[in-house]
């Protein structure tokens, strides 16, 4: 069942499983953000740092890219914003976490990439793992 609620200026829907494929292929920035939030909630700058650390500094998101992606991911329902935060933290700082839908989409994207990799190996484009 589709259940829509209206938040601020845009609508989003918690989507049925069939809607997951509509998100694919996931933009790389989205996937990086989902990975960064995979093991717990983080605020924006922490996401940037996590992405940079995981990729040995090869992927450095600019604040514009990060927050533009965050806004779209919030709208799509891939992540949501925490209403509670650590007591000693700056109250203006916003924390984000992956939604169930976001996890489902990330899993689907991982499957897609895995299948792609298998195809690449099957054709000999990429060497098989020893």
């Amino acid at each position: 069942m589709r259940h829509c609620i209206e938040v601020r200026y845009n609508d989003y829907c918690y989507m049925a499983d069939s809607d997951i494929t509509r998100q694919l292929p996931l933009p790389p920035a989205f996937f990086h953000i989902l990975i960064a939030l995979g093991d717990g909630e983080r605020h924006g700058y922490a996401i940037m740092q996590d992405v940079a650390r995981r990729t040995d500094g090869k992927v450095r998101m600019s604040p514009g890219t990060l927050y533009g992606s965050i806004r779209r991911m919030l709208d799509e329902g891939l992540i949501d914003e925490l209403t509670r935060r650590p007591d000693d933290d700056d109250e203006r700082r916003r924390y984000y976490r992956v939604t169930r839908f976001g996890r489902a989409v990330a899993a689907a994207e991982a499957d897609r990439l895995r299948a792609l990799l298998q195809h690449a190996r099957a054709t000999g484009l990429v060497p098989r793992r020893s």
Binding site: R8, H43, G44, Y45, M48, P63, L66, Y67, R93, R94
Partner: peptide, 18 residues
């Protein structure tokens, strides 16, 4: 303005740290 209201603080801190 809407974007600024939502993410302005986060972006400023990100810029500052970067």
């Amino acid at each position: 303005a809407e974007f600024r209201d939502r993410f302005g603080h986060g972006m400023t801190s990100a810029y500052r740290a970067a």
